[in-house]
């Protein structure tokens, strides 16, 4: 039973990180229907920029953190401006392949600058985050992930419900043409959503890096694991991303613990195929699958 609960806790914690990584992905899909294959690279970029700002430029943690997030936001903005905007209205395959090409470019760049080795981020989390309840221990990293995840959920909730830009974003997601005709600046919405998504990705990259150390290959693999998570949660639901992440995390933990460790990495994809056949719009997604 102890083993079961420990697996459950591990799974939930890892799952929260998956959910956090998936948030930015859903953000982009929600507003511009772009499937971003470069998401893992955005995660890695955030973590590596943070590492360099802290270790090389010697900025204090808080400043490094802020600078990284600002940088990520600007980068996301620029990616949309220069790469995605010319493709508005083009067939799906070009958009998908553009993000695949972008992923290869970013990965090459990251490996050129920082190399393929595993690095460790400085441990800066305060001691109160280390929670010990009886024999059950939640390490500070998981605690940080949970806190940041909840923070973002609340922020996104407020943003989409009350702010003008958030409402614009929802209107674009709902019907791009109608939004355009009502005077919503659709391009700005796209740019903003890429900026926010890159920011969230950078943030999640830093937290992922705190847990396992950062390496380009590991983080880009996480970027692909986002797919089962978002399909499970529903491609356009941010709450769904977190819940999907939790379920996939627990599924992985139990498969790794009870069946075989090697099956662990492939089981999300098996779940993905089954899910696509049974309920392609996920748990909280918009039901708009047409069957032809």
């Amino acid at each position: 039973m102890d083993f079961f609960i420990q697996l459950l806790v591990n799974g939930l914690s890892v799952g929260f990180l998956y959910g956090l990584s998936a948030m930015g992905f859903v953000m982009i899909f929600k507003s511009s229907s772009v499937l971003n294959f470069a998401h893992g690279e955005l995660l890695a970029l955030g973590a590596f920029v943070f590492l360099s700002l802290h270790a090389v430029v010697q900025l204090p943690i808080a400043w490094a953190f802020l600078a990284t997030l600002t940088g990520c936001f600007v980068l996301g903005f620029l990616i949309e401006r220069f790469f995605l905007r010319p493709l508005i209205g083009e067939p799906l395959i070009y958009v998908i392949m553009l993000t695949v090409g972008l992923a290869a470019m970013l990965r090459g760049l990251l490996l050129l600058i920082w190399g393929g080795n595993l690095r460790t981020l400085p441990d800066f989390l305060p001691a109160w985050m280390d929670i010990q309840a009886g024999w059950l221990r939640i390490p500070p990293v998981y605690m940080a992930a949970i806190l940041v995840g909840i923070l973002f959920l609340v922020l996104f909730g407020l943003f989409f419900k009350y702010s003008a830009q958030g409402i614009f974003m929802r209107s674009v997601a709902d019907n791009q043409r109608a939004a355009l005709s009502l005077g919503v600046h659709v391009r700005r919405v796209f740019a903003l959503s890429w900026g926010i998504a890159a920011l969230v990705a950078g943030m999640s990259g830093i937290i992922l890096g705190l847990m396992n150390g950062i390496s380009v290959h590991d983080l880009s693999a996480v970027g692909l694991k986002v797919f089962p998570v978002v399909i499970l949660g529903g491609l356009n639901s941010i709450t769904g991303a977190v819940i999907g992440g939790l379920i996939i995390g627990v599924l992985e933990a139990f498969t790794g613990g009870y069946l075989s460790p090697s099956l662990r990495d492939v089981v999300p994809y098996i779940a993905l195929v089954v899910l696509l056949l049974v309920r392609p719009y996920g748990l909280f997604g918009l039901v708009e699958i047409e069957r032809v």
């Binding site: 493709l87 083009e90 553009l98 090409g101 290869a104 990965r107 090459g108 990251l110």
Partner: peptide, 24 residues
């Protein structure tokens, strides 16, 4: 001490991106 494999990956991605943007 640079490894050149990343440069290949970068050039490969760049080729895809440029073709999609300029001659889809």
């Amino acid at each position: 001490g640079l490894n050149m494999a990343p440069l290949r990956e970068f050039a490969f991605g760049l080729a895809i991106v440029l073709f999609i943007l300029f001659e889809p």
